[in-house]
Design a protein around this nucleic acid. Structure first.
Lengths: 139, 139
DNA sequence: TATTGTTATACTCTATAACTATA
DNA sequence: TATAGTTATAGAGTATAACAATA
């Protein structure tokens, strides 16, 4: 029996977590990617679209579409940056904050379910190991 | 500092390994997905396209395209199953076996590089933990 | 009737290039 | 000249539906 490749395992682990997270967020009308953007924008320091894109490792044109979608749902708002009018400051609306509060609980539960076959120690170790494997975003 | 989400870590770990594996395989004219199919088909038991698709967790229509590509490169060959003519038995050609031999070494090296920031023990533990998180293919 | 392979088609996610406005 | 946001567009990768051949 040939052991499964690391690439297969990572891909399918990712698929499973995406599925669990997506199902957990469905009642709130957002998916895992939108949750990630919303959670990132819930930050004390004002964040431009480009800042957010770099932090999440996605293209700035992709970020345009994601902010569009969140704005249509009244979860974030764009306003011009006071000091540099090329930039948009993007921030959660009141509704965005509320949604984020409940969505965080749902995503935490989804992660917990995903990790439920592991001991607490192994779950923590998985996270630590992945942290070491994935370099922090540049900039 | 908000800690990075498990979904982010898994996605970007996957991206990094895909990149390393792709670069390692480029000299042999295949990518990581084609390698996975080729390695799976290098099996003592004859395997149909549907068998292979189920094992890799991809759609059977996707498998058609992958086998097409590998056949164009003279790395696999289709022949009718002797006992059930609805099925194709797909098997590596001589050239496929040779390519697989060198490609395996390249992929092993890419995985090693991917894991190079970890101790041997942590690398092994990562693999074990992922094995437990990813259910074996049904069927 | 059900299964295997195939084709046509469409959808999602993403990136590249070019444009606008600001700096 | 360079940067932030936007638009148009195209490329992967994937899946669904319908068909042909076979069971």
């Amino acid at each position: 029996m040939s052991r499964r490749r690391l690439g297969y395992l990572l891909k399918h682990a990712n698929l499973r977590l995406t599925e669990l997270t997506g199902a957990a967020l469905e009642p709130y009308g957002i998916d895992g990617r939108e949750f990630a953007v919303l959670a990132l924008l819930d930050s004390p320091a004002p964040m431009s679209q480009l800042d957010a894109a770099r932090r999440l490792g996605i293209d700035r044109t992709t970020m345009v579409a994601m902010v569009d979608a969140l704005e249509r749902k009244d979860l974030v708002r764009r306003r011009p940056h006071p000091d540099d009018r090329r930039k948009n400051v993007v921030e959660p609306t009141e509704r965005g904050h509320e949604t984020l509060g409940v969505a965080r609980i749902a995503v935490d539960a989804a992660e917990e379910e995903f990790l439920s076959s592991l001991s607490g120690g192994d779950a923590g170790l998985l996270r630590d190991v992945l942290e070491r494997l994935v370099p922090p975003p540049a900039g």
